[in-house]
């Protein structure tokens, strides 16, 4: 185990205020991008572009506002397992729905 991991679990990571304000600004810009992208006629792609931007925004919220960037690795595995399980639900549900 690296010294870095060790430090993560013993110390409270104090994020500079600037980081939060920067993340917030990025989220606001991405909201503008989503609205702007919706004005462009991309037919079937519209929803995928919207989802892609929403995923990018979610990543910012999860990593910085929810502190996952600074949590111990156990939390990463938690998230990966949970999202992995959710993807399985989505795929299985749609496999059933699309081919019935």
């Amino acid at each position: 185990m690296s010294a870095n991991d060790h430090a993560h679990e013993h110390e409270v990571h104090i994020t500079p205020y600037k980081v939060y304000i920067g993340v917030w600004a990025a989220l606001i810009v991405l909201t503008g991008v989503t609205v702007g992208a919706a004005l462009v006629d991309m037919k079937q792609m519209t929803i995928f572009v919207a989802l892609f931007i929403a995923c990018a925004k979610s990543l910012l919220v999860i990593l910085y506002f929810m502190h996952i960037a600074y949590e111990s690795r156990v939390f990463w595995w938690f998230l990966i397992s949970a999202f992995g399980a959710y993807i399985v639900f989505v795929v299985l549900t749609f496999a059933d729905y699309a081919f019935r």
């Binding site: 909201t31 989503t34 609205v35 919706a38 519209t46 929803i47 919207a50 989802l51 931007i53 929403a54 925004k57 979610s58 919220v61 999860i62 506002f65 929810m66």
Partner: peptide, 19 residues
């Protein structure tokens, strides 16, 4: 609170922007 925010990040484009 951030989870509530996350849900809205998806609700907004999916409901308002698919016209």
């Amino acid at each position: 609170w951030h989870l509530v925010d996350l849900v809205w990040i998806f609700l907004f484009p999916l409901y308002y922007l698919i016209a």
